[in-house]
Write a protein that binds this DNA or RNA. Sequence first.
RNA 1: GCGACCGUGGCGGAAUUGGUAGACGCGCAGGACUUAGGAUCCUGUGGGGUAACCCGUGGGGGUUCGAGUCCCUCCGGUCGCACCA
Length: 804
Amino acid sequence: MTTPPVYDPATVEAVAQERWARERTNEPDLDRAARPFYNLMMFPYPSAEGLHVGNMFAFTGADIFGRFKRLQGYDVFEPIGFDAFGIHSENYALNVGEHPARLIPRNIATFRRQLRRFGGMFDWRHELSTTDPRYYRWTQWIFLQLFKAGRAVRKQAAVNWCPACKTVLANEQVIDGYCERHPDVKVEQRFLEQWFFSITHYAERLLANLEGLDWSASTVAMQRNWIGKSEGAELIFETPVGRPITVFTTRPDTVFGATYLVLAPEHPLVDALTTPDRLDAIRAYQREVAAKDVVTRKVAASEKRKSGVFLGTYARNPATGAAIPIWAADYVLMEYGTGAIMGVPAHDARDFDFATQFALPIVRVVGRAEEPLPFEAVDGTLVNSGAFDGLSCLDGGRRIVAWLGERRLATPRVQYRLHDWCISRQRYWGPPIPIIYCPDCGPVGVPEQDLPVELPLIEDFRPDDTGVSPLARHREWYFVPCPRCGAPGRRETDVSDTFLDSSWYFLRYPSTDSDDRAWDVARTKRWLPVTSYIGGNEHAVLHLLYARFITMVLCELGHVDFEEPFPRLRAHGLIVKDGAKMSKSRGNVVIPDTYIQKWGADTFRMYLMFLGSFQEGGDFRDEGITGIRRFLEKVWLLAHEAAGAPAQPLSAAIERKLHQTIRKVTADTEQLDYNTAIAAMMEYVNLVREESRGNRPAVEPLLVMLAPYAPHLAEALWTRLGHGASIFTARWPVHDERLAAGDEVEIAVQVNGRLRGRLAIPRGLGEAEVRELALADPTVRKFVDGHAIRKTIYVPDRVLNLVV
RNA sequence: GCGACCGUGGCGGAAUUGGUAGACGCGCAGGACUUAGGAUCCUGUGGGGUAACCCGUGGGGGUUCGAGUCCCUCCGGUCGCACCA
């Protein structure tokens, strides 16, 4: 036998990739595919640093799944694109003093090179970038559909304003109340008119639909949490000024214990309810709260320190009729509920702190006197609650709401934590919101045939202190006639949130080749909803919720015929280095390029999948990578040996192990348990090397199983074994359960639950025979002799336990 | 504070979901081949013990013939949300 050539990954991988490109291996027929499988991964933001290991880890895991499905006979569509608009790119551009329109294409080129190099099964015909006018034309179109349907509305909202940057900041740019780029400049609040999408209108359906989704449990939990449904009631407290205060509470059962009311400092009734002598104090408090940054507010919350001011007036407790004082305090938030609460210090820790601090009365209405306050449990019994004494909290609450409801003082109410989605960004690097303001008609949508509203290429894209986007300075762009009446109008200068770009990209992929509509109807029907979506839990809430919402609205408006875009979603874990999250500041960032250069893409892909569980993440340590390389070298050798030798029948041992391996690798790959699938292939290779070298039937199925993991190597060895067609036209092997099971098993023999021996027996042997064999074992005898066997537990083919 | 997850050899991690703990890999030790080995190939590798055996999955308790797995409790860690009424 001749010595096999040295395994040189660089060559092997270049040859395979060139072949796939030439033969269009990764380009399914989108119009005729019989078994469409849409394999989606979360598209990257093309940062200047290039693709990092986290991306590589995620994409490899998703790519393995796609290739696996391909080998199982599906027509797999695996697209990729770039989420290239947004604040990250813009800030980076500002920092390095270069225009994002020049920077981004360079970054994308780098990403494209890296993505090709690692061997993703991408259909490059359908690459997209959110910054491409051919794409964001349709992002704007989607905005218009929501606008027409009344789901995009303008409201006043607070924004983070950095006096040094002279611009609005995203929440993630505010670090503990200070500007990310100016660590000693405090961020201020300003109020601006903004565009909102009415996502809260869909809160209930977004929550209810979670039930029917095949998603990672952790992701579902985070979405549920974020939507934050609370059931309770609105209660009405009469005031001396005629206008009542409405509060939201989840505990209407405790209304007899409400000894005061608190309004958020910005509550519209504060002025009317403040007595003249307290007006100055209130004004000062409101100013103080407005100036308070996030950090001191958080500290106050964690230290249970409360602040507040008495307004000087009293409201009537609807249950007791008592006059109770009205306060303003910043522990009540205007954005949630009605911006007003009833204070029940005996049964709410925050109210308890407040009442203690300001010496307000505390009245117990739930539970027994010996239980310490505050007593927050709902499984108690009402006391001090008039006719409702003795009822359970739940029942009592319902009855109290009904009783107050007769006087129109209470209504059941469901409240969500979810807020409407503010999509306005007073920024440059995004798709302009397609609205024209007309002095007569108000905000008018740009006619669809005029889309896209192109983002003008202006050199000075820096924000200034006017509070409006830099686009307003581009006068020939800014001033346009009203599309409806022709009066002189001006364009909306805000751009939309990047999350809008990414909320529909999966709808665009199959149709990137059509410019006359956002997506082709027939292709969408064939390929969507997405068959498998894999991505990180950092997008568990915002991206996934927004994408679900947009799809839901589009479905309602008849543009798609499904409500949920991602019926199956798997979250992958985080990859850490030396037990810590990778970050530039820690200096522990792993650059994939150097590893791929040194070890090859196949080794690197497999190492990433082997270092831990894909769905839980793992620790990146370079030492382990040699193990994978050795494994691939062994496969390389086995295949070359087999290529030069005549095929022989499989030995019984190899055959059984082969079928066990097929069973395990198939099941594990399906479950994304890639680390154990790889371990199973290693075991198999170890056995073949010992017992069956140079045998093609032992090697060929292995290569197919390996192909999703190490596609280039598998392709090269498949060719070496004489196959003309790509290994990705081969079929995934199917195991024979009978062969995998074999006819001999080893069982454990226990005495009193402790292992005392092992027996190799024929599969399916009866209890009596096994017991007899076990009692022939001297070690077992030693522990049994002299005792009566009181009980025997026999689990066929697994364990025999003798209890003495 | 609330929610979710986790704790297994020197290290990364397995364990058919209540049935032989430590698969697979790294590392380490001994040996072979070598001018050499950081290449490759054998052998060994949870701890203790000459051995029979004993101990062992963060600590303690429980259920069970049998617990890494289930229950209670405590300790430690990671992530998400957080003055959400």
